[in-house]
Simulated assay, not measured.
Amino acid sequence: MRVLMCSPDLAAITDVLREALPEHEIVPTESDALARAAPNAEVIIPARTPIDAATIGSASRLRLIQQFGIGVDHVDLEAARARGIPVANAPAGPSGIGKAVAEFALMHLIAAGRLLPTHFRTLAARSIAVPFGASLFGSRVCIVGVGGVGSEIARLLKPFGATLIGVKRTPDPELADELGLAELYTADRLTEAVRNCGFVVLSVPLTDETHGLVNQSVLDAMPDGSVLVNVSRGPVVEREPLIDALDSGRLRAAGLDVFWEEPVDPADPVFEREVFATPHGASACDIFLRGTMEVVRGNIERMEAGQPLKYRVT
């Protein structure tokens, strides 16, 4: 069986796929070669490559689109439904992504709060004028998106004695109690949720509802000198209001693992501000590779056996 592994620059994923599925042909496929390769593929693993209606329409042998991760925002789900092609992902819990991304989010919260980019510049200038940042200990943190990733972030923050505020699409009092959230808001009350929070961390999927979720009104509601961390998707935050908030001091700093266009341009003006940045690498670690590989292998085996797939999106 031919399995297309898109985004072949992610060589570590290709390697674990070949190790776990030795009986199948794993074909690393560049985006510009996808149209030629798709007609012979039975499984497509998108990774970071857009899978549009034309690709789905031309893939006459396609039986499954299986994401190696959570996000399927770059897959044309309507086109897949129209052809009856199942789309599945690897949820935060079973895949290990929740823990991996939460750990990375914690790094961003600390690095941005303690002004790590300025520390780097100070070191390069051979200066001892270190900046004074903000500590997580005893702080008030708003977690926007208390799902698989957000719940793990909440658990990691407990030792800091932080007051945790959650934002979730639907109310869930039991989850709020389990995680020790002081308050749990629905998304329509986001501006209320972020008030008085020194740190806000975003861990929501990119959907029509979350596109531009953090806009001028939300940023204006955050206290002066606060910190924003985004480990979800770049377009969840409106770009120009973010830059304005950094320039005005409304935001002390931002931690960004995701951007509006990726790969991000290193000359992007956002890097002229107090921004701790990483290249969409929050999940890139061993527990993600092991856990997600088990999810992917399991679904391919179920597909071959004619059994119901797990973690279907369509």
Rank of each mutant, 00 (worst) to 15 (best):
L116Q: 15
R114T: 13
P39E: 12
G57Y: 14
S95L: 03
A79G: 03
T122M: 12
E30M: 13
L62F: 10
H24Q: 15
V101F: 03
S31N: 15
E42D: 06
K99H: 15
A112Y: 04
G96S: 07
A100E: 11
A105Q: 12
A59R: 10
R83W: 07
S60L: 14
H24F: 11
M107G: 14
A38H: 05
V101A: 07
A82L: 10
D73K: 06
A125W: 02
P91W: 04
A88P: 02
P91S: 07
V43L: 01
V72G: 09
R114Q: 13
P94T: 04
R126C: 05
A53I: 10
G98N: 06
E78M: 05
L109W: 03
I44C: 04
L115N: 14
R81L: 01
A47H: 13
R126G: 08
I44W: 00
V72I: 07
P50K: 03
R36C: 00
A54E: 15
L77C: 00
I44A: 00
I65Q: 07
I65P: 02
I85L: 03
G96P: 05
A59D: 15
A102I: 06
E103C: 08
R114W: 11
R48T: 14
F120Y: 15
N40Y: 11
H24D: 04
Q67V: 12
D73M: 05
P28L: 08
A53Y: 09
T29R: 06
H119M: 13
L116S: 12
T55R: 11
I26K: 05
D52A: 13
I44L: 03
P22E: 06
E30R: 15
G69L: 09
I110Y: 07
E103L: 07
I70H: 12
Q67L: 09
A54I: 11
A33W: 03
T49G: 04
F120P: 00
P94Y: 05
A92T: 00
E30C: 11
A112P: 01
L115M: 15
L123D: 11
R126D: 10
P86D: 12
S31W: 14
I56V: 15
A37G: 05
L34D: 10
I110K: 04
A124M: 09
R114K: 07
D32P: 05
A129M: 10
I44Y: 02
V75R: 02
M107D: 04
D76V: 00
H74P: 02
H119A: 14
L123H: 15
P39F: 03
R126H: 06
I85M: 01
A105M: 12
L106H: 08
T49N: 06
G57W: 13
A33D: 12
A112G: 07
V75G: 10
V87F: 09
P46F: 05
G98K: 04
A41P: 03
I70N: 14
A41C: 06
R83G: 08
G57K: 14
R63D: 13
T49E: 01
A125E: 08
V75S: 00
A33T: 09
A38E: 10
L106T: 04
D76F: 07
H108K: 07
G84H: 04
I45Y: 04
A38C: 10
I97C: 09
I45G: 01
A90N: 10
I65R: 02
A33F: 01
E42P: 00
R126W: 09
G98Y: 00
I70M: 14
D52V: 13
G113F: 02
